[in-house]
Each structure stands twice: as C-alpha cells, then as structure tokens.
Design a protein around this nucleic acid. Structure first.
Length: 244
DNA sequence: AACTAGGGCAACCGCAACTAG
DNA sequence: GCTAGTTGCGGTTGCCCTAGT
C-alpha cells in the first residue's frame, strides 16, 4: 500500500479539546474500551495523536477522576510521600485514588514551589540584615532537613519565663503540616515582626509575639517562619523552616 | 469599562521504559 | 539479542480566567 505523503495527510489537531472531540473519545472508549492509543483516534474519527487522546482521557475524561480541591488528607499524603519519593508523581498518584500524576504535579508546582520562593525571599531579606551572612540559596531550605529548634525557654516582657514545647512542622502554601495536626491558614501574610518570622492565627490558638515581647533564651540558630502559639497556658513553637 | 498581571491547570514535548515480533 | 512500535513519565509551556488597578 502506498502511503500518502505527509503533506497530503490531514494535520493533527493540537491545543484545547472541543466538546465534540471529548464526546467522540468518550463514546468510543465506552463502546470499545482502550485497546491501542495509536490506532484509536482514527477509529474514533479524531484528528488527534494517540498521545493526546491518552492524556485527555487519563487526566480529564476518565469518569473515575476526582474533581476539585485536594482534601487535607490528600495533601498530607502528598507531602509525606514526596519526602520519600521525590518527584515521582505517578507513584504518588497511585496512593491517591481519583487523582492523576498531573494533578499532583500541578498542585506541587503551583502551591508548594510558590511558598518555597516566598520563603527564600523572606530568608534573604532577613539575612541581608546580618552583614556577615551570605545570600541564602533555595537548596539550603530543604524540607528533608528540619532540625528541632533548640530554643527551650521563652520569656515575655514581664519577665515571665515559659517552658516551650517544640515540634517540627512544615508549611506549604496555605497549609501547615505538623506532626500532630493539619491546619489551613486563613491569613498567611500577617507578618508582625520581621525578625520573628511569621505569626499566624488559626483555630483556637492565639499567636505569641516574639522579639520585643518574647526572647528565646538558648537559641544560637536563626529561625524563620516560626509559629508560636499559646494553648491552655503553654507556649508552643512549631518550627517551620530554618536557616543555619 | 478596559487593561494588566498572576495563578491555575490542561496539554505538549522529549525521553525512558516496556513489549511484541 | 535486536528493533520498531507503543506506553508512561516528568518537565515545561501557554492559554484562560480572575482579581486588582
């Protein structure tokens, strides 16, 4: 059989799928199932590549897909798995029924990276105040290397010293993941004191101001983005990120 | 109302891995 | 074992929508 030269074959469609194309692909798969992505578009009457059809089905048209925002449980799972798996989005997606690797990748790239960038900028701002310190790099701020803060006591302006409980926590975009709870922030950018990092108010916890009001006694490390809050008389500090 | 910038996400691209002949 | 075809994956791009001015 003589094949038509490339110039005479109809060009494949690219870009956004039309409702009509979606309808054709869904109807075809519902009737015949998935058997060969390369041959399927022709059989279904679509001027699309097999790759394009596969992607459209897997990431958008598949009726098993979940739509909408990620739940807290899903975000927790993503954050935890990313620690061990890195950017293996497809492996992470296997642990989240109804979510695709593309969904998770997009979530990570839009929310988490955005926060990382913001965090680095803030760290740079903080460090510029310290003339002897060098400009921080993003690789210095890895989520996998979070030491527990060494600050153990906090005293306020009245000279009252409180024991501080420390725990590690991570902040990703609009979310905090601590070792015991998951909190969605309502107002991320409520910075009260540059030196003290960010102070967030959420749930029943009241943020505690550092700097003029509170002093960390035995810390020789600069911490940024610390979350201090008071809960039933006890001051807690959640260490969100650090610079050494 | 018009314009602009930024965010979110669908879709593409290139390469790697897999499979059948 | 080799090769060609197919599928899967991760990085990246670019379009569309929305909020801000």
């Amino acid at each position: 059989m003589v094949r038509a030269p490339n110039s005479q074959r109809p060009p494949l469609t690219k870009g956004t799928w039309s409702p009509e194309e979606d309808r054709k692909l869904i109807a075809y798969i519902e009737r015949y199932g998935i058997w060969n992505w390369t041959e399927m578009p022709k059989a279904a009457g679509l001027l699309r590549s097999g790759k394009s059809c596969r992607l459209r089905w897997l990431n958008y048209l598949n009726p098993d897909l979940k739509r909408g925002k990620f739940s807290r449980e899903e975000v927790e799972t993503i954050l935890k798995l990313h620690k061990t798996m890195g950017n293996s989005w497809s492996k992470i997606a296997k642990e989240l029924p109804g979510r695709t690797d593309n969904d998770i990748k997009n979530f990570w790239n839009t929310h988490v990276k955005k926060w990382l960038k913001r965090n680095v900028e803030q760290a740079a701002k903080l460090q510029r105040k310290e003339a002897s310190m060098v400009e921080p790099k993003e690789e210095d701020l890895t989520q996998n290397d979070l030491p527990v803060p060494r600050a153990t006591k906090v005293s306020n302006s009245d000279g009252v010293t409180n024991e501080v409980t420390t725990s590690s926590a991570e902040l990703f975009g609009d979310y905090i993941l601590s070792n015991s709870s998951f909190v969605e922030l309502e107002d991320y950018n409520r910075t009260k004191d540059e030196n003290a990092g960010l102070f967030e108010s959420f749930g029943d916890f009241q943020p505690v101001s550092m700097g003029s009001d509170c002093v960390v006694e035995d810390s020789d490390t600069i911490y940024i983005n610390q979350l201090w809050f008071q809960d039933e008389g006890m001051i807690h500090v959640d260490h969100l990120w650090h610079l050494c």
